[in-house]
């Protein structure tokens, strides 16, 4: 059994891993039921009042629109759900003492930390994939398909993605969301190598995400100068893939930035872990 397989097996045999999936199931189901129950009023709200000026035919509320709407929760509870597992990957084993057992075995620390990191990325990907499949699946059952129309309050344009490309664009957005959330996971993972308890890395990483969001949105010259250095600036990469046309240079820049943050956080975690004295 490879180290990665061992890490995957340990991760998915813990009930804590399924908290994220359960929360997403409950949240998506609840949101889509609420929207369905009050569909006319919701359709008006989603159209942003534009039906006063435009003649809108067909389903404004469809699976793709609802999914794009729910994806905004990537800024809210999904980072926490990712951190819940990522922040636990190393620290929980240090707390329980099983890390000692692992580290007195032949595999090097470098291989162990890399396997754990990859398992964390796998978990993040599986969580986001589940999120996407659920949003689209329930959306299609409740609302059917159609064009993906994005009404963005405050912006002077409407984005309309025809039905035949809405699915692929939504898929691409979820792939980008995996990259986006992996940075939160990497940060929690890094914190997990620094301490021997699980709460610290989870709360710490969420605190950093919140503070970064706040700093990145404050309208001051100083905080604006900080924006390029905050990973939260690039976390909205998935939204760029729902624009039409896609501005690939910006998407590329965002993706590179996110990969860079992933690499930096993992690099520090790696450095710390391979040199760490195991006293727990």
């Amino acid at each position: 059994m490879s180290l990665f397989a061992v890490e995957i097996e340990k991760t998915y045999r813990r009930w804590r891993t399924y908290i994220g999936f359960a929360v997403i199931l409950a949240a998506v189901l609840l949101l889509e039921v609420i929207i369905k129950l009050d569909e006319p009023q919701m359709a008006h709200a989603f159209s942003g009042g534009l039906n006063a000026d435009f003649l809108i035919s067909g389903h404004i509320l469809n699976a793709w629109v609802i999914t794009a709407f729910i994806m905004n929760s990537l800024y809210i509870h999904v980072p926490f759900l990712v951190a819940l597992v990522a922040g636990d990957m190393v620290s929980s084993e240090a707390t329980s003492g099983t890390l000692r057992f692992m580290l007195i075995r032949p595999p090097s620390r470098a291989k162990i930390i890399t396997a754990k990191f990859l398992a964390m990325i796998f978990y993040t990907a599986s969580l986001i994939a589940f999120f996407g499949i659920l949003c689209v699946g329930i959306g299609l059952v409740f609302f059917g398909g159609g064009d993906l129309v994005k009404f963005q309050p405050g912006l002077p344009h409407i984005v309309v993605l025809p039905a035949h490309i809405a699915a692929s664009r939504t898929g691409m957005a979820f792939l980008a969301a995996i990259l986006s959330m992996s940075v939160v996971g990497s940060l929690a993972f890094l914190f997990s190598t620094l301490v021997d308890n699980s709460i610290g890395p989870i709360i710490g990483s969420i605190a950093v995400v919140i503070i970064s969001f706040i700093l990145g949105n404050l309208p001051f010259e100083f905080t604006e100068s900080l924006r390029p250095y905050l990973f939260t600036t690039y976390m909205g990469i998935w939204q760029l893939l729902l624009d039409n046309p896609i501005e690939w240079p910006i998407v590329g820049k965002y993706a590179l930035a996110l990969i860079g943050f992933d690499a930096v956080f993992f690099g520090i975690a790696y450095y710390v872990f391979v040199r760490k004295d195991i006293k727990s």
Binding site: M1, L3, V6, E9, K10, R13, R14, W15, S96, G97, T98, R100, F101, M102, I104, R105, P106, P107
Partner: peptide, 24 residues
């Protein structure tokens, strides 16, 4: 065994040995 034997409490004895043994 260093200090005390700690295992994955949520796994069976067999599975613990399988996972830990497979590291060697």
């Amino acid at each position: 065994i260093v200090e005390k034997p700690d295992f994955y409490l949520f796994l069976s004895a067999h599975k613990n040995l399988e996972l830990l043994g497979s590291l060697s």
